[in-house]
Every structure is written in structure tokens, then in C-alpha cells.
């Protein structure tokens, strides 16, 4: 199942539990491993705890249980290093492109780490070239197209040279060509990836392994195709879906 399942996992989560302030349990005992070089898709209904889970992976939320990232326990003193190792991409690009121009945004993480401005700018421009946005460096993010915004956020995360990429709904707002572009770009990156998505087609194209979240738990693990078949996890009626068995119930899994 794993691309190169060797040695220690990059991320090791054991029995993670988290409650929001209002008392609702968002995570109810999640255990998960991510190995170097692999790409895992996280599927599941809205509100099943997917986003809450990935927010734990670089310490934006802190629940009970064990979270170890690159051998570092999730603690306050490790936070800076963990946030450098884990690049987190949120669903809405506007919320993470907060600097006045694209290049400043890409350099943000470097400047926060104390890299000298000239060095940071050079590096930021190099990363922008990597995602095909060298021409947009000095433009304000507001003027970018949805696909360009997505690539800019990816560049902003890549600039910190993370070991792990965590993407929350990366295909939202993207048209099919932009989705394809993103797919090619992601496939060319060596990092281990976790991708939260509703888009099983996208997930299937990039991830060998998938986990299925429901009510704060991982209730199944397997290939994207298997999970899709198991839970009828597809947007269209099952008739057109060749992988779905006859009589499969689209929609809510039991």
C-alpha cells in the first residue's frame, strides 16, 4: 500500500481526542501513521473531524493523546520546529495570502525564522519560479486567479522546506485545468503528503492510501477506490460509477 514504507513514521498519532469549547467531541480516539514519501488521502463527511485532525499536526490545536512529528513530541518547545517541518495549506487561499504582495507572502515563513531579507527574497522568487508564478511576484494576491492563488499558497508553504505537506481541500475553487495543474505540481514534489478532500477523483490520482473519517474516528483504511466503493463516496449516482457494486447506496455510509 505504501510507496516506500520504511523505518520510522514521519507522523505518529495515537488515540488523539479533542473537544471544542462547547463540549462537542471533534476527535474521538484517532490513531494514524504517515511514512516518508507516501501520500494519504483523508475522506469523510463534513464535520467528521478531518480539519480538526490536520490542525493538530502542526500544533494549531492541542488535544489529548500522542502526536509525534519527525520524532518530535507535540509540545510547546518543539512547536517552532514542527511548524517548519509540516507545511499546512488551508482551504481558502485568501486567508493565507495575507501579505501585500505574493513574494512577501512566500518569504513570510523565512522572515519569521530570521532569514535575512535579501536571502529570503531570493529564495522566495526561486520557489515562485518552481510553481510557475515568477511573473506574479510583486502583484497583490487579490489579483491572482484561483489556480494562481492556490499555487502561491503552495509556494509560501514550500519556501520553508517542509518534510510533510498537509493540504485541506486543495481543489476547492479550482476549475478542472487548474486541478490538473495542481496535481502535476504535487506529484513532482518529494514530500510526504496528507490530502483532505471530497474529490475522490483527485484523491485517487495522487494517493495510494486513504483513511475514512466519521464522527471523529478513522473507521476504515484502504485504497481510495475501495473506500469509495465501501461508502458510496461519490458525487454522482452509482450507476455511472464503474467501481461501485450493484445496489450500492450512494450518500451516507452505515
Amino acid at each position: 500500500m505504501r510507496d516506500s514504507a520504511s523505518g520510522e513514521p514521519l507522523i505518529r498519532v495515537r488515540d488523539l481526542r479533542f473537544r471544542y469549547e462547547d463540549g462537542t467531541a471533534a476527535l474521538d480516539g484517532v490513531s494514524f501513521d504517515l511514512y516518508p514519501g507516501e501520500t494519504v488521502a483523508i475522506l469523510g463527511p463534513n464535520g467528521s473531524g478531518k480539519t480538526t485532525f490536520v490542525l493538530h499536526l502542526n500544533g494549531l490545536l492541542r488535544g489529548d493523546g500522542e502526536v509525534i512529528v519527525c520524532g518530535l513530541r507535540l509540545e510547546k518547545r518543539n512547536l517552532e520546529e514542527i511548524r517548519r517541518r509540516v507545511g499546512l495549506l488551508f482551504q481558502d487561499p485568501d486567508e493565507q495570502l495575507f501579505m501585500p504582495t505574493v513574494v512577501e507572502d512566500v518569504a513570510f515563513a523565512l522572515l519569521c525564522r530570521g532569514v535575512a531579507p535579501a536571502e529570503a527574497e531570493k529564495k522566495a522568487r526561486a520557489v515562485l519560479a518552481r510553481v510557475g508564478l515568477e511573473g506574479a511576484a510583486t502583484r497583490p494576491p487579490y489579483h491572482l486567479s484561483a489556480g494562481e492563488k492556490r499555487r502561491a499558497t503552495l509556494a509560501a508553504v514550500l519556501a520553508a522546506e517542509p518534510d510533510i505537506l498537509v493540504l485541506d481541500e486543495p481543489t476547492t475553487y479550482l476549475d478542472p485545468p487548474a486541478q490538473r495543474e495542481l496535481l502535476t505540481l504535487l506529484a513532482s514534489l518529494p514530500q510526504a503528503k496528507i490530502i483532505v478532500t471530497h474529490d475522490t477523483e483527485f484523491a485517487e490520482a495522487i494517493a495510494r492510501r486513504a483513511v475514512f473519517f466519521q464522527r471523529g474516528r478513522i473507521i476504515a483504511e484502504g485504497s481510495v477506490a475501495e473506500l469509495r466503493r465501501l461508502y458510496g463516496w461519490t458525487a454522482r449516482p452509482a450507476r455511472g460509477d464503474t467501481t461501485a457494486p450493484e445496489g450500492a447506496q450512494p450518500g451516507s455510509p452505515r
Binding site: R83, F90, L111, C112, V157
Partner: peptide, 17 residues
């Protein structure tokens, strides 16, 4: 959250001088 995730720790540095 997005700022914290990228290592923001209380100071917004300037790129250009």
C-alpha cells in the same frame, strides 16, 4: 491560524529595505 502555521511568533518582518 495561517500565520501561526507558518511560524509567526509575534513579529512581522519586512522583506524590503
Amino acid at each position: 491560524r495561517a500565520m501561526l502555521a507558518r511560524g509567526y511568533a509575534g513579529r512581522l518582518a519586512e522583506l524590503r529595505n
